[in-house]
Amino acid sequence: MADLSVNLSGLHISNPIIPASGTFGFGHEFAGFYDINILGSFSFKGTTREPRFGNPAPRIAEASAGMLNAIGLQNPGIDRVISEELPRLRQVFSKPVIANISGFSLEEYAYCCERIDKEEQVGIIEVNISCPNVRDGGMSFGTTPESAAAVTRAVKAVTTKPVYMKLSPNVTDIAEIAAACEEAGADGISLINTLTGMRIDLKSRKPVLSNITGGLSGPAVFPIALRMVWEVYEAVSIPIIGMGGVSTADDVIEMMLAGAAAVGVGAANIRDPFASKKIIESLPDSMERLGISRLADIIGGAH
């Protein structure tokens, strides 16, 4: 019997598949398609202190083997996430969820993490310092080792739950930033967020996205994500949630060989609401074909 279970900072999950933040809402929409308790966990939509509407439309553009989004962290705000979304999630998901938290100041990150720390349903806090679609926040904290470490320290001071820092690929040396987060006390690293890109409409000769740029995700970014997971694995000893373009069980295994202890599935959920389910169901076959009996054994196996 194939063993798919993995361990993230003491959180044992039945398989490594974690739908990525922003591609799975707060879970209940997908519960209409399948029993989401089959997931290892999932990371809920990036949440800020205040409710946010996000960017004007159009927010979505297509790319070869992927898509761009410029949502701009639309979310109902931490109060409603705690009072409405988590109780609603409890009806359909009995496992610990990953809380994705974003912010525009150290105080805001700390405030939201302190609030979410009290929620029993939350197993891990994933701190988003990598959103490419908002100004003066999000990604600006994730682009230097110093600011990434400062957010890590601010958050670690107010929570007892494992803290995973979600990093941006739009940097010169992601391993250096991951190492700074580890030194500041991070329990794990999530990577990658989306890559900044754009499209231009040939008829109007204007950018497709109202935000001009957006974040590229989907199979197009998989080799980049894999390379960055490889580099971060070499630089840190804390667990990695690897993500970026994962769309098959073989991609999951490749990502784990590069160093991921668990694997996020993002844009694939947008293309096909059943994507994460299909990947989980086909993992045992891929493992058998590749002679893997215990998935946790292959983490970083390619190094």
Binding site: F24, F33, Q74
Partner: peptide
């Protein structure tokens, strides 16, 4: 009409104020 991502209310790609 709006440019859509998921079509099922998850991605917030086609939101109207």
């Amino acid at each position: 009409e709006e440019r859509m991502g998921c079509g099922i209310g998850v991605c917030m790609g086609c939101v109207y104020r």
